[in-house]
Design a protein around this nucleic acid. Structure first.
Lengths: 169, 169
DNA sequence: CAATTATTGACAGCATACTTACAAAGTGGA
DNA sequence: TCCACTTTGTAAGTATGCTGTCAATAATTG
């Protein structure tokens, strides 16, 4: 006889990777914000600052490739970081379209101060698991994110960051 | 001697769980939307529809607990689902504040049609991993999300859904 | 060299995801 | 009963994360 109760549970949601990834992202952001509440900085803003520190003088388009972050949204992120005076935007000499990004002293100092807090947040995210399981999860996630890179609308292009070296400031 | 190059790589971002969760969420949404592009439905809207099908006559506050979704945001999600005529909102008799949620015929039909597409999307997210690794990842994620439940701003309260049965319509 | 094409940053619009605040309505205790 | 407290939905405000479009500027190519 046919099953009449296929629809009575939430398993079609709870047991699926899509739901678990959304949930884990929610949790990760909450932990990050809580640990860093002394500073007014979001996870995305943190990633942007680290990328600009790593690649001083990078432009917005290349930055978006380096942190796998949509170009449109990145505009407002940069704007907020500039308003808070953590970064500076300077027009490039050889290309009138691009604006080069640099950390300010205030931005550098913030980054130095916040790194230990971010590390604590990152540790807390995996805390509930046993040590061996943390390593396993991290390894599988790293693998999966890498293998699925092209599936996202904004694939990570870490090597793009090197291109800007020619148009140095 | 002190290391001078602590800051030259992006490892402070790429190897951390926070970044990997954000990235995986990005990828998961992209795959979901691509598979379901024949229907105008987002992952969150899908979860809401499944929850309403599972708990007909649930109210918005309890729905938010059942899909671990912020109450404020849920308001606009419900509004969009209502506009598309997938759900109906009826005032409750005994409590003039609450509005009870039900699937429409159109909503039920949509859900039936879209489930296979969602299943394909869910499968694609883990596709790049070997079968054994998929199971391991899913198990660890399920564990971690559960153990970290209270860390999120909107913890999952699946059992809340049962409370509305008293105020049935 | 001129016409086409590509790139860059900006903007508008939609959809999460959170915050605080608020009014209306319900609940409980003195 | 009256008053404090809570609950419910809603709204305003901020921040991602995506879709488009657009003008200015570069790069390419016929």
């Amino acid at each position: 006889m046919p099953s009449k109760s296929a629809a009575v549970t939430m398993d079609a949601v709870y047991t699926k990777p899509g739901y678990l990834f959304r949930r884990m992202q929610q949790i990760a952001v909450a932990i990050f914000v809580e640990e860093c509440r002394a500073y007014d900085l979001t996870p995305v803003q943190y990633a942007a600052l680290v990328a600009i520190r790593t690649h001083p003088g990078i432009d917005a388009t290349r930055l978006s490739a380096v942190i796998a972050f949509d170009r449109s949204t990145l505009g407002s992120v940069i704007e907020r970081l500039e308003t808070k005076q953590y970064i500076e935007r300077k027009p490039a000499r050889e290309d009138k379209r691009v604006k080069l990004l640099h950390l300010t002293k205030k931005g550098s100092a913030l980054l130095r101060n916040i790194v230990p807090l971010v590390d604590r947040a990152q540790a807390r995210m995996l805390q509930p698991l046993k040590q061996a399981d943390r390593k396993t999860l991290l390894a599988l996630l790293t693998q999966l994110v890498d293998l699925n890179n092209e599936a996202s609308r904004v694939p990570l292009r870490a090597e793009d960051a090197l291109e800007h070296l020619g148009k140095a400031n």
